[in-house]
Design a binder for these strands. Structure first.
Lengths: 340, 340
DNA sequence: TTCTCCGATTAAAACGTTTCAGACAGTACC
DNA sequence: GGTACTGTCTGAAACGTTTTAATCGGAGAA
């Protein structure tokens, strides 16, 4: 059926070892032989069998990725697409897995390792108290995370600078003349949320604007919570003129609340969100937001893992911090001169 | 490092063949032996090596899925999550791949087959003139598609009944008393689009409402086209009182146009979309839409492929048609009595 | 001439499974 | 006591690679 190395060797009149060498150590084989074998390989459409290679080399040429259950605000499609593309370049396959119903998350990883299914992992949806990280670290198994963890110092990770993102959003509003800028955040304690809220404060501090504590509202993610939070802000004696939300869903909720009060978004109240989920562009008015370079994240995550695998120097703790970008749309008001 | 079958056999004091039998043909081994070996397997945390198994059995226990480039209106995350879960149950891994830059789509499939990387494919984003299908058919390689193709009679596929969906949407509006119902569709020629538009006509015909040709507008997908189409409909001498869109993006665009005319969505003009993209629920007012059971699709696709692989009876041409469901939200008007 | 070295090639082992053909001991049957 | 099973277990081959060590012919050095 499929051509094997044996077929190639027979047709080319050389040993299988030579064929293997042509592919893996082209320098040690005579040029003439090389060309002849190459021609046969081409002609037969030969591709080395993955399983055989994996068995012999004791590496699988594939990396595992746990399919996330929820993907709120996470552009899985673009992330994963780039991950796959980049992995392909390094001759690696992406293998998806998920804990079986009732199976512990960590167990799923353990199983993948035990059956020698992957050489390493790409991990997303990290956070405080993530037991996967701890387990992989003590197992000494290669992995790279998207997002920081409790053990960020000990492993490779890629993250988007949430602080810079929130700073960007806030500065944008300051540029447009706003001084009373509110922040709808998550409860303290999440890595991502705390980062972003610090960016808000930094931007204000940089411009010498003092933070009014009552302008910072913390709530869980979602449209409804965003709406409630905004109502609360609007009920203040001295309400803000602009608001930055830690996530687009909250921003969309805030927009609803603003609209319900008969105010015009962008004119009476400027809004900027975070994550640039697809619905941000589709909202009306369209929501200004902070876009994370998810394709770059995917790319970088794989590149780091490849390095780790090549040198198998676990524990070098490479890190990559990417800068998000501000996407200005109608919700942050009529375009003042400065769109940067 | 990892325990192998040899380790187990040594510790349990039996041959490797017996260990293998314990796992694969438990019936032919004495109960006592079985239990003893099982205990050792447990104790050592032994899991059969994937590569070794694949090499010996000449099947890979994995199925390939080409990462789609664009995912408009396709809930990749929920589809893929269920696919992975269901595959796991059948002891199959999902391997992602994508054509390398410059590489032909079909070539990517061919390469996967040649290197014996997968036992079969799950394919989405099908349509007229899809050369992947043709190639796989003549290669006699197992696969199941989500969506019909030019060769639907010759292979297994799963699809959502778009006709029933559009019927549901249209009937819903008829139930609410609308008689002048417009349809914003795609240009004729796409399998999915034509199906859905026929559902619109069927619903009207079933209730004895005649189709006014000028109420059917065809345009490409997207928010802007939807807006333009709606403007066109509103400019009619005798404009519709409700509109069904073949896709949510078009519906969202239509909503923008309606709003811009100073009309109130749901009261002056009812709107129903299709696909129930995340933005539908987030729009304001929230958009009524037709939801496709993507989790069921994923499930079914895998189940069919598993059957195909087991019996290796390619060409049985199993088919599965799933019925979508109507999600009623504010855009289709105040709730009249009948929400079904 | 003989020895050594070198470049090119290859035979064979190994990776961890599954499976086929036997082996082996006991049991039932004639 | 031999034959034929039967139930359990095992040795060895095979799957398609890579890799190590060995072979081999020829060229250069002594």
């Amino acid at each position: 059926m499929r051509a094997t190395i044996k077929d190639v060797s027979r047709v080319a009149g050389v040993s299988v070892a030579t064929v293997s060498n042509v592919l893996n150590s082209p320098d040690i084989v005579a040029e003439q032989t090389h060309d002849r074998v190459m021609a046969v390989i081409e002609q037969l459409g030969y591709k080395p069998n993955r399983a055989a290679r994996a068995l012999q080399q004791q590496r699988t040429f594939s990396i595992g990725y746990q399919m996330p259950r929820e993907t709120d605000g996470f552009a899985l499609d673009v992330f994963l697409h780039r991950v796959v593309e980049r992995a392909e370049e390094a001759d690696l396959a992406i293998v998806l897995f998920a804990p079986r119903p009732g199976q512990d998350q960590v167990d799923a990883y353990r199983e993948m390792i035990r059956r020698g299914a992957v050489d390493g992992f790409v991990i997303s949806a990290t956070g405080h108290g993530d037991d996967r990280i701890e387990h992989l670290l003590e197992a000494g198994f290669p992995f790279v995370t998207f997002g920081r963890t409790d053990f960020s110092g000990d492993h490779a990770w890629v993250d988007v600078d949430g602080c810079a993102g929130a700073d960007l959003a806030t500065a944008h509003l300051l540029d447009r003349g706003h001084r009373e800028i509110a922040f709808i955040g998550w409860p303290e304690g999440s890595i991502t949320g705390d980062e972003r809220s610090s960016g808000y404060r930094r931007a204000l501090a940089d411009r010498g604007v003092s933070v009014r504590p009552e302008l910072v509202v913390r709530t869980e993610n979602g449209v409804e919570p965003g709406s409630t939070a905004m109502q609360q802000l609007l009920d203040l004696e001295n309400p803000p003129t602009a608001v930055v939300a830690v996530q687009d869903l909250l921003a969309l909720g805030a927009m609803n609340a603003i609209r319900e009060r008969g105010l015009t978004i962008g004119r009476d109240m400027a809004v900027v969100g975070f994550d640039d989920i697809p619905s941000a562009a589709l909202a009306s008015p369209a929501l200004s937001s902070i876009r994370q370079p998810m394709d770059r994240v995917g790319e970088l995550v794989v590149e780091m893992l490849v390095e780790e695998l090549d040198e198998d120097s676990v524990g070098t703790a490479r890190t990559g911090i990417l800068t998000p970008e501000l996407v200005v749309r109608a919700s942050s008001g009529p375009d003042g001169g400065s769109t940067r």
